[in-house]
Design a protein around this nucleic acid. Structure first.
Lengths: 340, 340
DNA sequence: TTGAAAGCGGTACCAT
DNA sequence: ATGGTACCGCTTTCAA
């Protein structure tokens, strides 16, 4: 036989399969798509060659020919070491995967310029849609997305007039709510510890809401710290140290998230500060560590995984042509604990 | 002027730009690739139209025409709520992004069948390469990857004869090392708490190494628990409860990771067990929570982010045609703490 | 410096 | 049931 060995690594095309099976490209194509219009014996011959040659269809060619988009969905998030975002991404990817779509990741660090470059790159590969973190995007990014005419979900930071769709929560209100809560508890001299707040960072809005509520309530945020670091345990620890060294008389600290709050808690305890007697602590996000923490932490519940799922669902519904509520408020719930 | 308004959302093709600029497709193409062979005035005219029409090149067509692959790299990991993997992914994506490549995510839950389906899908889109978790893959997956003739990195679990390249650590040895460490400390009756161990789960190898070392040292692993859950704080807590209820006399527990170990620690302390006097605790991974934990946890340091970076670097070097060491052992370091 | 033609790997459409 | 042809958007090749 003059048949070639199948294990040379050159890619096999449909034409080669067809030739090997002694049929035309079209017939082979029909068999592969199981679209009818061929005899059993033809199918068997074609499939045998597919198997033997290890043929794998080139979906790029298919999509290209049909003018379709890819199954890829661009998902931009700031940082995976922020646990909130790894949870959100888990929710997104799982939902997308269930419906045959794939996440193309972009870690854009809350920087609109990075996001812009990433968006341009992704768009040139005909994605099915985009899910972006936050409401702040560069003008060029917005214009490119408009032109692309694909569904776009802005998530995390609620935006009542999004480019297209949005799911998130109102971080300003949420921060205000926490501030109000502390005021009502009798706290007046407050502190805040978080991380570097690029323009596109929703935590900045929480801080602003918090400051407003505290001011409205007759207190003041004596000192706030935005570390150039990730919002994790250790930054919470040393941030608290810095904050307390810089400013005496702080009665309670609001942290960007629970991991930072746990770090702050451990700093306080190891420095003979009683919680909540000497200082109050409030976290954010209801992150997993709280489920085993020895003191019930005052925090704000946010359904991160659900948020991700919902973002993906909005996108998928749009792709399938269903009607979609363009804006969803995922909400939040302040949970008083034993640390305030 | 008869020029159309640019803001209709139909996609603009190179041909349209060319026509608008009064040149041929080829000339426009040359300008866009800045590949020489055009006059300044031609370039200006073409670029003006690109701007005006909001033209975005269709890279799918480009790659297709040139027979290139996409810049996408398939990355399969089990689960993002396992903090080790979100760290690894952070390392991979950041490195890939720096070199113009994009991560296409696959959360394959340690299931070779899921991985196989995902691989087939990704391969049909002509990725530049693949990074997979672990050494266990379905035969069909392996065969497809061979055919695809793209670089493949197996990471996490060290494999001295990988399909192509590998970076990771020897989990069996690592588990053995921990077992030996506890034996030398005088522990004999041991327990293990981890999560559901699919065949493709490296934690299973750690458990096996651990069991072997303990047996070799004259002790025994009285009870091990593999919960059907994620390896996080709360599973560590309730897993410890289950383990201790099921088996009396356990002297020390080895946990799948530090987050579980912290959960276990909190369970013990809240049930009046002194650590390490009443029970020893060993974690794994040197996860961030330990940096602020009030007791120095005995753990095993693993450079997760670096592991991810290294996996990406191997792939990128191969793509750029550099020589690459096919197998790298990232190693581990047992760190004795105050919990044993 | 510029352009015309062929073709990448499939599919739609129309014949047979 | 099967095959021929044109074409998707772009690049390669060759000619002017």
């Amino acid at each position: 036989m003059s048949k070639e060995k199948p294990n040379n690594s050159k890619k096999i095309s449909l034409a080669e399969v067809a030739k090997a099976a002694g049929v035309s490209k079209m017939t082979a194509s029909r068999v592969l798509r199981n679209q009818g219009g061929f005899s059993d014996s033809t199918r068997d011959r074609v499939m045998a060659e597919v198997e033997r040659l290890g043929y794998l269809p080139n979906r790029m060619a298919t999509a290209f020919a049909a003018g379709e988009s890819s199954p890829f969905v661009g998902v931009s998030i700031p940082d995976l070491r922020n646990e909130a975002f790894s949870q959100i991404l888990e929710g997104i990817d799982h939902k997308l995967g269930t419906f045959g779509h794939q996440t193309v990741l972009g870690l854009t660090r809350n920087l609109p310029e990075e996001e812009e470059k990433w968006i341009e790159k992704i768009l040139s590969w005909q994605p099915a849609g985009m899910i972006l973190t936050g409401r702040v995007h560069s003008p060029k990014a917005i214009s490119m997305l408009k032109h692309a005419a694909i569904p776009v979900v802005e998530m995390w930071d609620l935006n009542s007039s999004p480019m297209d769709m949005c799911v998130g929560l109102n971080h300003f209100d949420c921060g205000y709510h926490v501030g109000r809560f502390l005021i009502e508890k009798g706290y007046r001299r407050l502190g805040y510890v978080g991380t570097d707040h690029g323009v596109a960072n929703a935590a900045q809005s929480r801080l602003e809401g918090f400051q407003k509520a505290v001011a409205d309530g007759g207190g003041d945020v004596r000192h706030h710290l935005c570390l150039n670091d990730i919002p994790g345990f250790y930054p919470g620890y040393y941030g608290t140290e810095q904050l307390l060294n810089a400013q005496r008389g702080i009665e309670a600290i609001f942290f960007q998230n629970d991991n930072m709050a746990v770090g702050g808690y451990e700093f306080c305890e190891s420095h003979a500060l009683q919680i909540p007697q000497d200082i109050g602590i409030v976290g954010w996000g209801d992150l997993p560590v709280l489920s085993v923490f020895r003191k019930k932490m005052t925090t704000v519940k946010v359904r991160h995984v659900r948020l991700g799922q919902l973002a993906a669902e909005k996108l998928l519904s749009t792709l399938h042509g269903s009607a979609v509520q363009p804006v969803s408020d995922i909400g939040y719930l302040t949970v008083p604990g034993a640390t305030t």
